[in-house]
């Protein structure tokens, strides 16, 4: 309380200025009357600092904000190799079928498409086994595309049949669920439309066996059975 009384005197603040760490008689910092710049100019201050070098270390402290320079990045053969791998990987990803594109983009055929590199990765078939049934795409027209494969696979008829049964079950479940959703959400209209779209685009793409062919083929077989 005593401090309060004293503080009121000269400066017009209601507390003892000593408590803020200002010595008696020391000048208080000037009031800020304008907003700070959006980007406090780092470069300029840096230039000044460079010119003055050591003899102003003290006053550097009072230059707000901090004026440290960005350190140069480390470089080594290892690092440049990893960066090359990184950029290569990124480009590959972008050109691959994993890049989810809006349907419209795909429909719009560009003349340059035929010059596109890495088109081999343009499509991929999800492994339906690891997906929940609500994500399984339905592909009516796909049959045409994959028929040659089917004949090849039919060599092993017994085994196929077994798996067909298994998948029939899955698809049955699927249908039931679809039914429910139709009632609940009423989005089914849109969904059907979407799927038409998908088939169009998938049809356009060159077929690429990227490894999921086994599961994928199976599924196409089953789709056929389930739908007709």
């Amino acid at each position: 309380m005593a401090g309060r009384g004293r503080g009121r005197g000269g400066r017009g603040v209601s507390f003892n200025i000593d408590q803020l760490g200002f010595g008696r008689g020391e000048a208080l910092p000037k009031a800020t009357l304008q907003p700070p710049p959006t980007f406090p100019n780092v470069t300029q201050v840096d230039k000044i600092l460079k010119k003055l070098e050591f003899d102003l270390t003290d006053s550097v402290l009072y230059l707000q904000p901090l004026t440290q320079q960005v350190h140069p990045l480390q470089t080594s053969e290892e690092i440049s190799y990893i960066i090359a791998v990184k950029q290569n990987f990124r480009n590959k990803m972008r050109e691959s079928g994993y890049n989810v594109l809006a349907e419209k983009d795909k429909c719009l055929k560009k003349y340059s498409d035929k010059y596109q590199l890495g088109i081999q990765n343009g499509s991929w078939e999800p492994n339906l086994k690891i997906l929940p049934s609500e994500l399984h795409p339905k592909k009516k027209k796909m049959r045409k595309m994959v028929k040659p494969n089917i004949t090849k696979l039919k060599l092993d008829a017994d085994k196929k049949l077994k798996e067909l049964e298994e998948f029939e079950k899955v698809n049955d479940d699927d249908d039931v669920e679809e039914e429910e959703k139709k009632n609940e959400e009423g989005i089914i209209e849109e969904e059907e439309y979407d799927e038409e779209d998908l088939e169009e685009t998938d049809y356009n793409m060159t077929y690429f066996d990227n490894g999921e062919s086994y599961g994928g083929d199976d599924d196409d077989d089953l789709d056929e059975d389930a739908l007709y």
Binding site: T38, F39, V42, P65, Q69, V70, H71, P72, Q74
Partner: peptide, 22 residues
């Protein structure tokens, strides 16, 4: 590596948001 990026020493780091002034 923190101070090898401009962000590491940026004075307005905490005011930086996507699609803002900063």
């Amino acid at each position: 590596g923190f101070v090898r990026t401009p962000c590491g020493v940026c004075p307005v780091f905490n005011d930086c948001y996507e699609d803002w002034d900063i």
